[in-house]
């Protein structure tokens, strides 16, 4: 009895125990409300949908359906494609902004710039997406503007209710997400490294390629992941501006869950989407590591 008590007392004093105790409310919440539910949909994805209830039969049927049905496969491939394009566009557009704020804005004004960049991100997502519909629509801002200056004779129709509008709207929504990680990694670069690069005879541009870019790479990777992973599951944008040919995987999941009430199939689609995202992300991170290592060697 004494033995266990003193051991408990010693354990309580240790740093590890204190840390675990401190994090336990948050960790417990995440385990109960996130890990367990994620486990649950994983489990559901192997069950069979009955008429009114779920039948507890282990089956791969949902996955077979999700991967072979033409409709689901098209949407899945489209989602992946849209996510990749959105990620590329967002990160490429974001890099110069992060670079500008980090290297060309005086330190006292950096916070203001970051604040300006983040503001639109926090404000009424739904209404912002809806307004892109207004901007890109048949009588929208773009079309009336272009008509007004005589560049086109009739409204462009390829910019709304398809994949294009989804890409534009998502690129807009995730812009701050892409800028901040790149900005942070650029800020960490010791400015004397760049001077050293030029001092050793490289041009400004080559210094950028050989010093700045490799050092900023962790930030770029973070941006890519932080944009790529959530965009594939975006629901609002394809729903509002995507039209029938802009539907993405989230719309499919919503359909299965709320309209068709087929939880197992919905779960299988959700799990498949997450698996694809994870694999693509891992491949990307792996390629990048090889690239950076190759440079060093």
């Amino acid at each position: 009895m004494m033995g266990t008590k003193s051991r408990w007392a010693r354990l309580r004093r240790t740093e590890a125990a204190n840390g675990l105790l401190m994090i336990s409310p948050t960790a417990l919440y995440a385990i109960l409300m996130l890990a367990a539910p994620l486990g649950a949909i994983f489990l559901y994805s192997f069950l069979t949908d009955g008429y009114l209830e779920i039948i507890r039969d282990f089956t791969f049927a949902n996955y077979i359906e999700a991967w072979t049905n033409e409709l689901y496969r098209t949407v899945m491939v489209r989602s992946l494609g849209v996510s990749m394009v959105v990620t590329a566009v967002t990160v490429l557009l974001a890099f110069p902004i992060a670079y500008f704020v980090s290297f060309h804005v005086s330190p006292s004004r950096k916070s203001l710039w970051l604040f300006l960049i983040t503001i639109p991100f926090w404000t009424s997502y739904l209404i912002r997406v809806f307004l892109w519909k207004v901007i890109l629509g048949y009588n929208g801002v773009v079309n009336s503007g272009l008509l007004g200056i005589g560049l086109i004779d009739e409204p462009l129709t390829f910019i709304l209710y398809n994949v294009n509008s989804v890409v534009i709207t998502l690129a807009h929504a995730y812009a701050p997400f892409a800028i901040l990680p790149i900005f942070v990694s650029l800020e960490k670069i010791d400015r004397s490294l760049l001077e050293a690069g030029q001092d050793l005879g490289e041009s400004r541009f080559m210094t950028f390629l050989r010093v700045t870019l490799p050092l900023a790479m962790p930030g770029v990777i973070a941006s890519v992941l932080i944009v790529f992973i959530p965009t594939i599951g975006d629901y609002v944008t394809p729903q509002l501006v995507g039209g029938p040919e802009g539907r993405m995987v989230a719309n499919l999941i919503q359909l299965q869950y709320l309209k068709l009430d087929n939880y197992p199939l919905g779960s299988a689609i959700a799990v498949s989407a997450m698996a694809i995202v994870t694999v693509v992300s891992l491949i990307f991170v792996g390629l990048n590591r090889r690239y950076l290592k190759g440079r060093k060697a």
């Binding site: 590890a16 994090i23 960790a27 996130l34 994620l38 932080i226 599951g233 989230a250």
Partner: peptide, 30 residues
């Protein structure tokens, strides 16, 4: 503090930052 499983637990807690919200939504719903 440093404690065992720190990276794993923090990773799980921070996961919703990148997880599509629809996944959070359906898993909780289920």
């Amino acid at each position: 503090y440093r404690f065992p499983m720190k990276a794993g637990l923090m990773g799980l807690i921070m996961l919703p930052l990148v997880l599509p919200e629809i996944i959070v939504a359906v898993s909780l719903l289920v």
